[in-house]
């Protein structure tokens, strides 16, 4: 399309301005994190000396050894469990035509609108009765289940979008259901699976309410849950709080930068397909 150069400059100016509005808070956060611990920081101010030791200090005071371990245990368990369940269910719904398949699809999709608040109270008491509070299994089960509606729906629409001739050819070769899934469909599902995995990792990592309810033991909480409490203790120590915040988001930001294509397509397609 032809556009006058001035128009183009204005448009890029506008985009840059918006990008700055998004990035400025983080610039402010990083600068704050580099001030001396306990110092009063003024908005956007360069520290006299870069206090990198804040990160070590925040790591130690926030108990990040435990928090990070919990976060990774929960996220790295939730991703494969969710993926396996979602693959099997999506395959069944899209290809195998189970009894009441339509109703079951709707049953899963229903979960996309249910807020965590609806389940968290009863889930706490249910898990307490069977001794699964303060237990990784409880949290993992909870997040896996909360993200299954998306996972099942994502894999179902992925399998349904594959050319029917693939399934047909597999069947003619005499492939059973499981062989069809493993040998024919899954090898072609790399991108869809990567996207599902990074989204489930992110949503699990970021889960807050479920974790603070199901994990009363501070040492077993995940990084964001720990950070949520750290805030209460260090309200006025902005540099330390900023450093802890950066530590908490670092893994997710690194993943985002590596897998940005998957994140972006997942968030937008996942939304649109609905």
């Amino acid at each position: 399309m032809r556009t006058a150069p001035t128009g183009l400059v204005l448009r890029y100016g506008l985009l840059t301005l918006l990008a700055l509005l998004i990035l400025l808070p983080f610039v402010s956060l990083v600068l704050a994190a580099l001030h001396e611990s306990g110092a009063t920081v003024a908005g956007l101010a360069l520290p006299e000396r870069l206090h990198w030791e804040n990160f070590a200090l925040a790591w130690q005071q926030g108990g990040y050894n435990n928090l990070m371990r919990s976060s990774f245990i929960v996220a790295l368990s939730a991703v494969p469990i969710n993926a396996v369940c979602a693959i099997l269910a999506g395959f069944s719904l899209a290809v195998l035509h189970p009894w009441a398949g339509k109703h079951l699809s709707v049953f899963f999709v229903l979960g996309l609108t249910l807020p965590v608040e609806l389940i968290v109270i009863a889930l706490y008491f249910n898990l307490r009765n069977v001794g699964l509070t303060n237990n990784y299994l409880g949290v993992i089960g909870g997040v896996v289940a909360l993200l299954l509606p998306f996972g099942v729906y994502w894999m179902q629409s992925h399998f349904a979008s594959m050319p029917p001739s693939l399934v047909e050819a597999g069947r003619i070769d005499g492939a059973g259901d499981l062989t069809l899934l493993r040998r024919v469909l899954l090898p072609l599902s790399g991108p869809a699976l990567t996207t599902l995995a990074v989204l489930v990792f992110m949503w699990t990592w970021n889960q807050f309410l479920l974790v603070i309810v199901l994990m009363q033991d501070p040492a077993m909480r995940t990084a964001p849950a720990g950070l949520g409490l750290f805030v209460g203790q260090y309200t006025t120590n902005i540099p330390l709080l900023a450093a802890a915040t950066i530590i908490t988001v670092a893994p997710i930001v690194i993943m985002y930068l590596i897998f940005q294509r998957n994140f972006i397509s997942g968030i937008s397609q996942g939304a649109i397909k609905e």
């Binding site: 069944s92 079951l104 979960g111 089960g141 289940a145």
Partner: peptide, 14 residues
């Protein structure tokens, strides 16, 4: 059978 794991977890925890 393929739906069972997802159904069980979803029903049990949600």
């Amino acid at each position: 059978v393929y739906l069972a794991p997802a159904l069980l977890i979803y029903t049990g925890f949600v």
